[in-house]
């Protein structure tokens, strides 16, 4: 079976400070350092020889980053070491951010979710990743740190291209912050793959906020996954719904708009055209469920 061919040194710092210091040596020592969290993606990249770091900095030992805090005002704070599984099985999240739990059910296998982290998934920058569309739809904020200090960016701006993010190589993602879901708001996410749990052919996350009378849509975010180099907002589709009373008819139109905005590519599983069409159907269906949820919220 395949193994990793190129060797590396393995470090396991005990504190964030220590870890950041190590990463900062990247420039001074000209050694290629790479962060490893769960390694569920990284180890595969090393096995395939796509990545050949000289030093691995394991952050799994930084217990200070392993937390899930919910506050009714501040929202949810997810430490970088929180596993997919911790999110999937959290009662607090089930109650307040059900969509995250629903999303997690279809991320790979329990085994991957038991050890892989949400932050690691997001840092990996795979356009097929499930968390990204949901985090963008939920207006998440990403907190990062390096020896130079901390900074934050909106989730929407975090991923730049295929497997490329705003993270500097001396930087760690430390926390994912998800604001409280506004009143009268419904959020839903679905991905489609022929076999459940596989990477999506296309996915869509939709967040809809209604006015107090629960008639008109005051805010909407439609985010597509797997159909571009990053998770992407379907802004034209959003425009179709914004300020209106959402009907089935409008959702079909929004789906069509999203389908045009999407930028999928041919793959072994399906053609570009099919994926576009799929986007239309998903946006329509996910939008409908988000609307129902907003009405009940």
């Amino acid at each position: 079976m395949k193994t990793i061919v190129n060797g590396f040194e393995y470090f396991s710092p005990k504190t964030l400070e220590e870890a950041l210091k190590m990463l900062s040596q990247y420039d001074s020592e000209e050694k290629e350092f790479k962060v490893i969290a769960g390694g569920q993606s990284l180890n595969l990249m090393m096995k395939q020889g796509i990545l050949m770091p000289e030093c691995l900095v394991s952050i799994k030992g930084l217990s200070e980053l392993d937390y899930l805090n919910y506050d009714a005002k501040e929202g949810l704070k997810i430490g970088a070491l929180t596993t997919h599984r911790a999110i999937e099985t959290s009662d607090e999240i089930q109650k307040n951010f059900k969509v995250l739990v629903e999303m997690e059910h279809n991320v790979s296998s329990t085994e991957t979710r038991n050890y892989g982290t949400l932050a690691g998934n997001f840092c990996h920058g795979d356009p097929g990743g499930d968390p990204a569309p949901v985090l963008v739809a939920l207006n998440a904020i990403i907190k990062m740190a390096s020896v130079k200090g901390e900074r934050t960016v909106p989730a929407e701006e975090f991923t730049l291209d295929y497997y490329e993010t705003v993270l500097g190589h001396d930087e760690l993602l430390t926390e994912i912050q998800i604001p409280v879901i506004p009143p009268n708001t419904g959020v839903y996410y679905t991905k489609y793959s022929q076999i459940l749990g596989d990477f999506a052919l296309a996915s869509a996350a939709v967040s809809i906020t209604l006015d107090d009378k629960k008639e008109k849509c005051t805010d909407v975010r439609i985010v597509l996954g797997s159909v571009g180099s990053t998770a992407m907002r379907a802004k034209k589709a959003e425009e179709i719904l914004k300020g209106k009373k959402i009907t089935d008819e409008l959702l079909v139109q929004a789906g069509q708009a999203a389908s045009e905005e999407s930028d999928p590519t041919d793959s072994v599983e399906a053609s570009e055209e099919y994926k576009r069409e799929l986007v239309g159907v998903l946006v329509k269906r996910v939008g409908k469920e988000a609307l129902e949820r907003a009405k009940k919220a």
């Binding site: 079976m1 393995y10 490893i36 390694g39 180890n43 595969l44 085994e111 991957t112 038991n114 050890y115």
Partner: peptide
């Protein structure tokens, strides 16, 4: 206590 894939975890982990 958790099921993990031993092919996807470095022994050092």
């Amino acid at each position: 206590g958790k099921a993990v894939k031993s092919c996807s975890i470095l022994a050092m982990q």
